[in-house]
Design a protein around this nucleic acid. Structure first.
Lengths: 134, 134
DNA sequence: ATATCGTCTGGAGTTAACTCCAAGTCAAGA
DNA sequence: TCTTGACTTGGAGTTAACTCCAGACGATAT
């Protein structure tokens, strides 16, 4: 079921995060408290899912530390007074991320170079092994 | 001193890795054994430094796990017979890295979007606070 | 000769981020 | 009513990658 609300098993499946990780994230305040049913079980609303998605993305792709994200979530729960602060936080992380991407792009070129040199070396080896042909 | 060989203090300074990390990397085989002087101290040759530089780059920028790099270094020390294997290993990591960069670029756009929305929200708030001025 | 400094080693300790587990609750089916 | 299965909690355990430390050694300065 996608509309209304999802069990922890469904959310785990959908976002490829273990149930343990989902509970852990909530426990440490990395995502806001998830909606519960009368027997205390988590029933993720769409809003809850958006948080899971956002946090997963910021952790796994952007690589932001858990602590920074807890700070962001805490600010969010304090309402409009923290809008500027939150924007500042995201902007700073955006800058970091852009820097990291640039650095990784350099590294990619360096790797390409190294691989290219391997190709040359291997080619030379092969030629040395059949000196009489062609 | 840059030509000939450098002490661990100099290498640490140059590559911004602590002496402990340099010794650790060598101990676990992440860089090949470093040249020593008669009293047993490390005296990094240019070749040693190139290893440090490469490994630092692959760890910190490409984010390759230590284990993978140990494998690469081990292969390197086995000579030309492992050229193909090493090239394959690097090629695989290149693909991973390219994927990661693509993913992070998506995330960057997503962050930009979110920041943009913050800007809109903040602007609206400001307008609401001074209703009489045009 | 002695003190200081930079370095050495082996091993223990730390940190971040999960990951696992035991014991308990709740709802549904046999 | 009993069992089964999905879920709950608090807390302990794990993993990767360092990071720190104590005790020893060798070269140089006093």
């Amino acid at each position: 079921m996608n509309t209304m609300s999802m069990s922890i098993a469904e959310v785990s499946e959908k976002f490829k995060l273990t149930q343990d990780t989902l509970r852990y994230y909530e426990r440490i305040g990395l995502i806001p408290p998830v909606t519960r049913n009368k027997s205390g079980m988590r029933t993720y609303t769409e809003e809850d899912c958006r948080w899971v998605d956002f946090i997963k993305c910021m952790r796994q792709s952007a690589g932001l530390p858990v602590e920074t994200l807890i700070e962001y979530v805490t600010l969010s729960r304090q309402g409009d007074a923290t809008l500027e602060t939150r924007k500042g936080l995201l902007t700073e992380q955006r800058t970091r991320l852009a820097g990291k991407i640039a650095e990784m792009t350099d590294t990619l070129l360096r790797l390409d170079d190294k691989i290219e040199r391997y190709e040359q070396t291997i080619l030379k080896k092969e030629q040395a092994l059949r000196p009489q042909q062609d």
